[in-house]
Design a protein around this nucleic acid. Structure first.
Lengths: 332, 332
DNA sequence: GCATATTTTGCAACCGGTTGCAAAGAAGTG
DNA sequence: CACTTCTTTGCAACCGGTTGCAAAATATGC
């Protein structure tokens, strides 16, 4: 068993409170006492039990990191940034993988059992209600990559997906494409819905456009490939706006297999600007999503909320930009 | 603040122990009592505080999941499998991102402060000493993707990297390559060392082989690309065994940029068989690493150790196999 | 040197649970 | 119905810390 505060106190010949105080900063301890205690602690190899102290302080420094995007490589970067950022602030990420089978209710309950100080929901496919469930349970929550409305129920950090849709539409129009399609992620995802909405709005005002749409089952290579193979059997469009880069790459793979060429026969524009999009064997034209800023901002918001739990919910939206690469034909 | 056991006890008109017992299975409670307590708990929305109970039971069900591979997409799958597998067994992964700056000592201390029941080190680049530090601190530990020796100090689950090196060598020999090179990951990684060792051993016995080697700074696309661009300035080899798929893909990208073709001018064989390796625009010949089995087995071992902490350290090695795709020329 | 102000220290209660033990209650036996 | 045995329940101590409060120690002023 590990060394406890009591043993250190005994060895140093002081009270338990004295030991506790030397290990909590801001407490009143004399230099002499501090040295005595630290020596004893070092001799014994003592380190305080964070969980025990959380009982009285009410703070665990545990942050639930909830996601369901374990098939989209950009989320590796997201996890990297979140874990690093949280660690740097002395917070500990408790990772929750919300796959299809797992009951969301159960996750809420579990994270409460572990008294997490806060929860970050990192997902563009989870319903806003999910994040809200934490808020209702009295847990500070930030929804990263979520849909930001004008009156958010919880803190939301992300991009304006509607505007991204418009952006994609304008880009395709500028290249002179007429027969245009949207290939989205899961239809239930708010990100898919919003991207399509903006895309549709912008194209609706343009003349002579033939617009179609379909959805992949999830944001993954396989789902994109599968859906594109299906589309290729029929009469494919001239250009596709894919709801996400990893989807786009699946689409590219399907097109390549069919013998058609990109961008000569079919144009593709993605969204995210994941690392692989710039790999020369992929070279995907896409819309850049500022992941780093979104994560940094989410963490800031989380930290702020720990001090001020009743902070008024806020939506933070970061701008996106087109990254021109090789999967769209030049403007006519 | 959350509802506590005391409040439930009061509401149900019973003792605190009674409430505690209804929530710990295996305890002696009458049906009548159970119903009474459960009703009160439901009315109040009570759920037990896992951390408080860990204080007496000595079990937190927290498992440290330590890794430093946040740039290699296969680790997204690794995290997916680990988090799911642990969750299914009622365990909670506390994720630790061991980037270059972070002090390994500090992680050990931190995980002890949170009284994790065990630690999984998931990395092929961390020194075996790191895992050992946990064992020395009295924490059950499994090193996944680590180097398994004949007398492991801690539980290790992974592949035989030396044998993989040999396998790669045999494959390249069979294809008639003579001018052969190894492009490894970080030189300090045991996986790199072992893969090179086997590769070298096998080629040393073959006649007329010209063997060279170099190392990328980490297992990442950029590092592979950078190293290959350097090699291309000189006189590149006929075929490369790359220490990892993501490295290989970086290498492919560099080759493509240089105007050379794969497999006509240069052959590439990777290791891991990551999802992207089979993407048609990559189509990488590689050695399959059975990630799923490694993770499953690691979790099994972890669970076993929770019951039996002094279990004798064991090495579990899973076989790898060649996956033929399009980056090696056919046998002559 | 003494009275007073300030800092440091220890006591004891508490955080939210668990558990050994003994008393109370229920069930079984003759 | 009394007696034994088994089950259920509550008491109280404990897990490893924190913290308000008052006593003890030290510093300050005159």
């Amino acid at each position: 068993m590990a060394i406890t505060l009591k043993e250190v106190a005994k060895r140093a010949g002081v009270s338990r409170s004295a030991v506790s105080r030397t290990f909590t900063d801001g407490a009143s301890v004399s230099e002499k006492m501090r040295r005595k205690v630290e020596k004893a602690a070092r001799d014994l190899g003592y380190s305080p039990n964070a969980l025990a102290s959380s009982l009285t302080t009410g703070r665990t420094k545990l942050i639930g990191l909830v996601s369901n995007n374990f098939h989209n490589p950009i989320f590796l970067q997201v996890f990297d940034l979140f874990t690093r950022g949280l660690q740097d602030r002395g917070l500990r990420p408790l990772l929750v993988n919300l796959s299809d089978e797992t009951d969301p209710e159960a996750s809420v309950r579990m994270l409460r059992q572990y008294s997490v100080d806060g929860v970050v929901v990192a997902s563009s496919t989870l319903s806003p209600d999910f994040a809200k469930a934490f808020r209702d349970a009295g847990v500070p929550v930030v929804h990263s990559f979520g849909r930001s409305t004008s009156a958010p129920q919880v803190h939301v950090v992300g991009i304006d997906n509607v505007e991204c849709g418009r952006m994609a539409a304008r880009t395709l129009l500028a290249r002179g494409y007429k027969d245009i399609a949207f290939l989205g992620g899961p239809e239930s995802a708010t990100s898919t819905q919003d991207r399509y909405k903006g895309f549709f709005q912008e194209l609706a005002t343009a003349p002579d456009i033939n617009l179609s749409h379909s959805f992949a089952e999830q944001y993954s290579f396989d789902a994109g490939r599968k859906e594109m193979l299906r589309l290729l059997r029929d009469h494919p469009a001239e250009a596709y706006f894919c709801g996400d880069d990893v989807l786009s790459i699946g689409v590219l793979s399907a097109i390549k297999d069919s013998g058609l060429r990109v961008p000569e026969d079919i144009g593709i524009i993605g969204l995210n600007d994941m690392e692989m999009a710039r790999w020369q064997n992929i070279d995907l034209t896409t819309i850049h999503q500022p992941i780093r800023q979104i994560v940094t901002s989410s963490i800031e918001l989380m930290v702020a909320m720990l001090d001020e739990p009743d902070r008024y919910p806020e939506g933070r939206v970061f701008p996106c930009s087109i990254v021109e690469r090789g999967t769209l034909r030049p403007a006519p």
